[in-house]
Amino acid sequence: MPASGRRRRGSLTPVLWVPAGLALALLGLPLLAVVMRAPWGQLPELLAQPSVSAALRLSLITAVESTIISMVLGIPLALVLARSERWPALARRLLRALVTVPLVLPPVVGGVALLLLLGRHGLLGQFLPFQIPFSTAAVVIAQTFVAMPFLVLAVEGAIRASDRRFEVAAATLGASRLTIFYRITLPLIAPGVSAGALLCFCRALGEFGATITFAGSFPGVTQTLPIATYLQLQSTNPESAYALSLVLMAVSVIVLASLRDRWVPGVTA
């Protein structure tokens, strides 16, 4: 079996290597350009600047928080989405569109939408006794808005690919629905959850548009690493911006490389 599989994979027509190579160059060469241009010699002192370390710390903390919130809220949403087959077609499509929209929406639009909902004069915000914009909470909300769909869609794929007979068997043996969820469903979809969580974390880490629009930018409170990078790029010394870009890239590549082939279980198992 492995031998024939290898032969089949080896039979990819050489013509396809050209566009595939171009695609890889388009995706990879810009990253290489940053690596080449980065001020390696000054890297330690550039990254030791208080504003940079504050942005790095804020970014890591908020991205972790956004990922946790996305898991707590997103996994149940993925279950609903995966089990929505019996719904009317319109409701099902609307639900799917709602989940997918933040993926394709320009993040700045997402930020404006969040302001119109949770801002001082927003639909809900006007009734709140406290102000959300310009707080770290606003950063987490903006990142969750943009990043949660990655987790939901990855988990939904995992649920669809999982074998439902285990759940049925557990039910016939008298397990409650909650027990089935914790003891059967979650372990079955765990690879999908971890893949989705890592993607979600990376997207939250890179979030810029929705964050600066909804949360603003204040060092240590709302100025995340991407915002600090952009501001450094505007200044007369872009070297710091290259250094920060390198850090963001390194974190993302390390996290994504740890994904290996576990994008969706069942496909590569």
Binding site: F134, I212, T213, A215, G216, S217, F218, P219, T222, Q223, I227, Y230, L231, Q234
Partner: peptide
């Protein structure tokens, strides 16, 4: 007492 340093004047 600043709450936000925006990326440009339009912000």
């Amino acid at each position: 007492s600043v709450d936000s340093y925006e990326q440009d004047v339009k912000g």
